[in-house]
Amino acid sequence: MSIFLSILALVIILISAGLLFFLALPPKRRSRWGLRPIPAFSELVRVLGLSVEEGTRLHLTLGHAGITQPTSASALVGLQALERITAISSVSDRPPLATSGEGSLTLLSQSTLRAVYRLNNALDLYDPQRGRLTGVTPLSYAAGMLPIAYDENVSAHLIVGHYGLEIGLLCEAAVRNNAFTLAASDSLSAQAVLFATTKQPLIGEELFAIPAYLQTSPAHVASLRVQDLLRWGTVIALVLSAVLGVFGWL
């Protein structure tokens, strides 16, 4: 990487960090920006409540990207969702279940579940088997989730992470069992599959809006704002570079 690009990246990171801190301040010090309604999240909140009432299980799957891989950001979003969903439904007869296709993600999901139970003073209800590795290859991971979809009285699947085409197997099982599915992935091929096979797919960067819409913390809403600002910056930079290129100034 050239020194110019390194410095540019560092400047963008520093500006983003500053904006993140500023926008995460309490709302009274600045005007509050509302989140645009996304039907998938309204439906998710409704399904969460229903599952607690009916005693059915929620299944959150985190993908198979390792924490050391560049595609792990989607799994981190999934862990945030897991924390919030567990907090809401930990008192249910059938607490949520997290599956993953990579070892470090499994341990992180167990750690997240344990932390929520500890904070709710219900550590005795914590079961490490609710954070499971279902397979270490993409297909074995998908195949390992099928018994959960069919046999564990799951009413909603939250599919948040990095996948390949194999995620279609879980989506099909969910449709057959008439379970709600909210799905988001950073992989283009998985997004295409999820669009065709799930009731509520999230496209592109909507994946990173999940923690904000689940009301995890002000930092997540601030993060969405910064993401929007960076997107506008990118759009302006792209248009500007195209115009400069046309006139031969770049």
Binding site: A17, A24, A73, Q80, L108, D186, F208, A219, V226, Q227
Partner: peptide
């Protein structure tokens, strides 16, 4: 962009998985 912000939240201690 979303990945950058997610990483930044972890780096700043806002997210602690």
């Amino acid at each position: 962009l979303g990945s950058v912000l997610t990483g930044l939240r972890v780096l700043l201690g806002m997210d602690r998985p």
